[in-house]
Write a protein that binds this DNA or RNA. Sequence first.
DNA 1: TATGAAAGACATCATGT
DNA 2: ACATGATGTCTTTCATA
Lengths: 160, 160
Amino acid sequence: MTQLDDLDRAIIRLLKRNARLTISELSEQLNKPESTIHFRIKKLIEKGVIDRYTILLGEEMIPKKTAIVVIQAETPIIEDFLERYVNHLMRTLSMMPNVLMVAKSGKDTVIAIVGGENEEKLDEFINENIKTLPTLKNVYVYPIDKFGKGKELVNFLTEV
Amino acid sequence: MTQLDDLDRAIIRLLKRNARLTISELSEQLNKPESTIHFRIKKLIEKGVIDRYTILLGEEMIPKKTAIVVIQAETPIIEDFLERYVNHLMRTLSMMPNVLMVAKSGKDTVIAIVGGENEEKLDEFINENIKTLPTLKNVYVYPIDKFGKGKELVNFLTEV
DNA sequence: TATGAAAGACATCATGT
DNA sequence: ACATGATGTCTTTCATA
């Protein structure tokens, strides 16, 4: 594990908020010479602490309404079919542009984060494209009414 | 709503993968003049299509094990207490560094994405810090075994 | 590992097609 | 939408401590 000092953490926090801050701006805000900031960032990237730089899309590009959907597959008579079916389910869901995240939990459960332009279109998508998938035991839908933390995951996960 | 053309989308996709690409690199990869790329990016930022630039943390900084936790609050005798209690719950969870995301669904449900160094520490955290919260009706824990899409949300949400 | 200075690369802007 | 060139800013490298 890599040990970070205060300067490393300060750089990371500032870059998380705005990765377009120049080295000279960082140097000014943190009262360190440009070459030091440059050296630290280079090391952080080399060590893999900073993985990569990316962009977040703005409000007008992202779904206005999201929901977390918990999907449970019916246990088939032949055990081995379950794993294959759940994998197939994950691939199917992953391909849908409305589906922001897909994860597997346990043998028979798939959890997805789903987005839509508004509440109606989101419900429509879930009813027509998820609840209709074959061989499901349960589908629990948790519409998100308000984020308390991590709201921006939607901006991050949205594709164009 | 803003209408994007193929060039806009191509720029966004490349910047999502690597926001440190220079205008000249983008210009080369997309076979368009630098001035055009520069102009497009400027417009995309002005229009709010690109919200901001950020960094993702690497594997060694992020929790190795995550879980989605669905928390239902007990309905109190006095209706009005429920909203206050759920809001309090959200604030409490949001302050925990292990908690990557918190969202409210309906009147009595809070959903969180929680991370830990490994399965044992994650379970410990959930058992000691979440299941022990007062006035809960149910806590469903869905440990994530595998991501099918959106895996990087963990890199995005992790703080230092 | 930290720093200062210098060289080279880059973004930005204005102007014109 | 694209081309070009002028300008100032930023990154990167290297020598030194």
